[in-house]
Simulated scan of single mutants.
Amino acid sequence: MPLAAAAILTVAGCTSTKPTAAGGSEIELAKAGKLTTCTHLPYPPFQVKKEGKVVGFDVDLVDLVAKELDVEQEIVDTPFEGIQSGEDLNAGKCDVAAAGMTITDVRKQNLDFGAPYFDATQALITKKGAPYKTLADLKGKTLGVQASTTGEEYAKKQANGVELRQFEDLALLLTAVKTGQVDAGINDNGVLYDYVKQNPDTEVTAEFNTGEQYGFGVRKGNEALRKKIDEVLEKAKSDGSYDKIYEKWFGTTPKK
């Protein structure tokens, strides 16, 4: 998103784990014995609260990193703006940003990403049977977008003659589609397909080839933690752990 990069602040009060990164560098954590993750709820199946606990695809992957560091993951629910701008990481609010977040050039100015771990694209969701298969079909109609997302940016550029209505989070956006407050909504395909499985009165009517990839973010310059995340994800993909987690949350294994 075109947001100004936040100033890099000195993180005070950090604690260190044992030396685990390449070259013997220590990984600094915001809280002793915790790998603190900033996310923005709800965004199922990547992160969602169920029975008082935050679970999801991203949660399980970051748990692998926490296990490798011999600490527990602690999740902080915070507005997406502070995550993708790097402000939460800079202030020491968390160690990792894991929020189904697309890697973009603008975001790279604000935080450092690990290697991509999930392929995504934008998609259109409507009430079942609605006649909207393209953005052009929505001319003169209303399209719901989630604030500060790549879906919102795509709609601003491509949805000519369409009225955009902004929502703070995914749940509000999807409720607006389901109840007819907007004619359609745009967001990442993974979360929309997850929603329609539970809400058969809605459907995904189109995908747009935006070629997006998700990444976990760390504070700018935090190379030790970034490298550790990459190391753990690479191992998970080679030993089958990633595929098992993927199938758990998406009901299928990833395309090779």
Rank of each mutant, 00 (worst) to 15 (best):
L143K: 02
G144V: 04
G144H: 01
V145T: 07
Q146M: 15
Q146S: 12
Q146L: 09
Q146D: 13
A147Q: 11
A147V: 09
A147I: 08
A147W: 10
S148V: 13
S148C: 07
T149K: 01
T149W: 00
E152V: 00
E152I: 00
E152W: 02
E153S: 13
E153F: 03
E153H: 05
A155E: 05
A155R: 02
A155N: 08
A155M: 07
A155P: 08
K156L: 04
K156Q: 04
K157R: 15
Q158D: 14
A159P: 03
G161W: 06
G161S: 09
G161K: 13
G161V: 08
G161H: 09
V162I: 10
V162H: 08
V162C: 07
V162T: 08
V162R: 02
V162G: 04
V162Q: 06
E163P: 03
E163I: 14
E163G: 10
E163H: 14
E163L: 14
L164S: 08
L164V: 09
L164D: 03
R165N: 07
F167A: 03
F167W: 04
F167E: 03
F167I: 02
E168K: 05
E168A: 13
L170S: 10
L170Y: 05
L170Q: 06
L170G: 05
A171T: 01
A171M: 05
A171S: 12
L172S: 15
L172I: 13
L172Y: 07
L172N: 11
L172H: 07
L173G: 06
L173F: 11
L173N: 09
L174E: 13
L174G: 07
L174R: 05
T175W: 10
T175H: 07
A176L: 06
A176F: 09
